[in-house]
Computed example of a mutant assay.
Amino acid sequence: MAHDGRMRILEAAKALAESHDSVQGVTISLESVAQKAGLTKPGLMYHFPSKEALMLGLVDHAAEEWAQRLRTHTGHASEELTSFERHRAYVTVATTAEVSRADYWIFSDALYHPKLSRAWSEHLGPWFETTGLDERAVSLLTAARFCADGAWMSEATGVFPSDDLTAVCRHALSLIDAAEQMSDGAAEETSTDTETEVTE
């Protein structure tokens, strides 16, 4: 029951953000969210005792929602996949998911409040893990991720959206393919060098 009340509040806060004409016009208060959720302010404060707690909850909810989209798309947890598979999932989901101004506002607000960025790091950080990869492969994966970031943010804000997101997705995925081929080539080269050393 408490979980239902918490979710009701978070959805109300997101709906308020979405109802504004611009991201800059978003103003969230405990009173406005309580009214939108059909609760009293004390009822809301039972779940979120302060505006900071509400914002932390909202960001955590949004970040977990993105991570869940990725798990649903792949059918796996991040640790069960390769870096290339994780990045392909993100590119695909980011260029096909339904996003809104509220998504962008929740994400961008973390720029000004460091505490809010932790949830994004915790939930999405594992999906962007590239430890152990050649730096050239990492740069290609990063470029693919930046393509995906730009795609969903542009769609969410309506500022210069793409006329063909499918093409954007395809090009971003080709960067990941190139990174994987580069990584495989480097691994084969290392293996050959090792075999040569053993033979000598």
Rank of each mutant, 00 (worst) to 15 (best):
A102I: 05
D109Y: 10
E18G: 03
L124P: 01
H3Y: 03
Q35P: 13
V159F: 15
R145L: 12
E180C: 06
M153S: 12
T40D: 09
S108L: 13
L10S: 02
V23D: 08
V138S: 09
S78H: 05
T72V: 06
E129Q: 13
L173R: 04
E31K: 15
D60K: 01
M45W: 06
H76I: 00
L39A: 09
T166C: 04
H123Y: 08
S22D: 08
T131S: 15
E85F: 06
R101W: 06
A97G: 03
P126V: 04
M153G: 09
G185K: 04
S162P: 01
L124R: 01
R86D: 05
L56I: 06
V23C: 12
A119D: 00
Y104F: 14
P49V: 03
S78C: 05
G158F: 06
T192M: 13
P161R: 06
F146V: 14
A172K: 04
A62S: 11
E18T: 02
S22I: 07
L70M: 05
A94K: 03
D193Y: 13
E197V: 11
S139D: 14
D134E: 15
A156N: 05
T40Q: 05
M1T: 11
G57D: 00
E155P: 10
P161H: 08
L70D: 03
T130W: 03
D109V: 15
G125F: 06
R71D: 00
A12L: 09
T131W: 11
V198S: 00
D103P: 10
L16P: 08
R88S: 00
R101F: 11
V33Y: 04
S117H: 12
T92G: 04
H20R: 15
F48R: 01
A37H: 03
A53E: 14
G185Q: 09
D184V: 12
A148T: 01
R86H: 03
E79A: 09
F84K: 01
P49M: 06
H61V: 05
K36R: 13
H47F: 14
I106W: 03
T192D: 15
H171I: 13
R69F: 12
A67R: 07
I9H: 02
G5F: 10
S83A: 14
F146A: 11
R6V: 06
S154Q: 09
S191C: 09
V26M: 02
S100C: 08
F128E: 01
W152S: 05
K51H: 07
S83T: 08
W152Q: 03
Q181L: 14
A167F: 12
I176G: 01
S117L: 12
G43H: 07
L54F: 06
A15H: 08
D184E: 10
E122T: 12
R170P: 06
K41P: 08
Q24M: 11
L44Y: 03
A167G: 13
A110R: 10
D21R: 15
R69K: 10
E11F: 12
V23I: 13
